[in-house]
């Protein structure tokens, strides 16, 4: 670390705080230094406040999902779960009888949560596998193959970045309808299966950086271009490919508007759409907040787990992906 002041951890800050206290009792205290430390304290206060704002809703999801509805309706402000109860989770996974569920403030309607979960997994997995693979193929053609018209075709792909996704949704819906794929999982995934311009650009950047010497050695050994793609380029860029795959999976998992357009029944309903329906099926007594927060938590969990495992990779790739 070349810069000394930029990395100060809380322990150092504490030490600086005590030092300041002794300083102030001394007659010739170092004034600019003191002001500087106050600034640090203030900066950390702002930072901690922002972190609390960031984390609190997650905690509140958990806290609410572990509390019974009757306790929630008793207007309590306790930070810990009161009247600890797993009923919310039981309702989400259909482990309660309708009578029991209604008694605990649920709607009693059978929600096929496992079905939605499975649908989400199928859609997000298929999109990720196909989209990343096809994008990688295109990225390979745009970075390592030599052919007439390459730059022109690439600029066409560049152009597609300018089309806002939202604009394509209506015509794409009509196309899916023409194909008879409304209310099917294939209909939900089809438009995203082939590529995204982002994935192509992102991977192309890394493919270009693979040294040509290695490729030439493989060519001399008699390997073809296809073989080089599978045996050389892909293994050498596993890192960036993983990053793209994670981001793709996340986007597919979190998508709402498109699946909302295409799916009409439980056959093709994914988690986000099922959750979004919540406000429309509120029981007479008032919303089943405990059940809902349990459901949102379960819906968010796969992404949070994925994030837990790949946080460093995702966090470090964000700058590149945005500025590029």
């Amino acid at each position: 670390m070349s810069r000394t002041t930029a990395t100060i951890d809380p322990a150092e800050l504490k030490a600086a705080g005590t030092a300041r206290q002794t300083d102030s009792s001394a007659p010739n205290a170092d004034r600019p230094r003191r002001r500087f430390n106050w600034g640090k304290v203030f900066a950390w206060a702002v930072m901690i406040a922002l972190l609390i704002i960031t984390v609190f809703p997650f905690y509140w999801m958990l806290r609410t999902s572990l509390t019974s509805n009757s306790a929630l309706y008793a207007n309590d402000m306790s930070l810990l779960p009161t009247d600890f109860d797993l009923g919310g989770f039981a309702r989400v996974f259909g482990l309660q009888s309708p009578e029991e569920a209604i008694a605990q403030g649920g709607s009693g309607a059978s929600i096929d949560f496992w079905r939605y979960l499975l649908n989400s997994v199928v859609v997000a997995t298929a999109i990720t596998v196909c989209q990343v693979f096809f994008s990688a193929m295109a990225a390979y053609a745009f970075s390592r193959l030599h052919w007439r018209g390459r730059d022109f075709v690439f600029s066409l792909f560049l152009l597609s970045l300018m089309v806002p996704l939202i604009y394509t949704l209506l015509p794409n819906f009509l196309l899916i309808r023409d194909l008879g794929l409304i209310d099917t999982l294939l209909g939900i995934m089809l438009p995203s299966l082939f590529m995204t311009p982002f994935a192509i650009f992102f991977l192309r950047q890394f493919f270009m950086n693979v040294p040509t010497e290695i490729e030439e050695a493989a060519l001399i050994d008699g390997a073809g271009k296809i073989r080089i793609f599978f045996r050389l380029i892909i293994p050498m860029t596993v890192g960036p490919i993983t990053t793209v795959a994670i981001l793709t999976y996340m986007n597919a998992w979190n998508d709402y508007l498109w699946p909302l357009m295409v799916s009409y029944t439980d056959d093709s309903r994914v988690l986000t759409v099922a959750l979004g329906n919540f406000t429309e099926q509120t029981p007479q007594t008032g919303p089943d907040w405990a059940g809902l927060m349990a459901a949102t938590l379960v819906a968010a969990l796969p992404m949070l787990l994925l994030f837990l495992f790949f946080a460093r990779r995702i966090v470090n790739s964000i700058g590149f992906s945005g500025i590029k």
């Binding site: 951890d9 984390v55 809703p57 979190n254 949102t296």
Partner: peptide, 26 residues
């Protein structure tokens, strides 16, 4: 200026990992 810790940056990014729907409902 304060800390370039990866953990800190991860925490800050956590809300981005959940869907708009989840954020809205919470």
């Amino acid at each position: 200026r304060l800390s370039r810790s990866v953990i800190l940056r991860s925490v800050v990014l956590a809300p981005y990992m959940v869907s708009n729907v989840v954020a809205a409902l919470v």
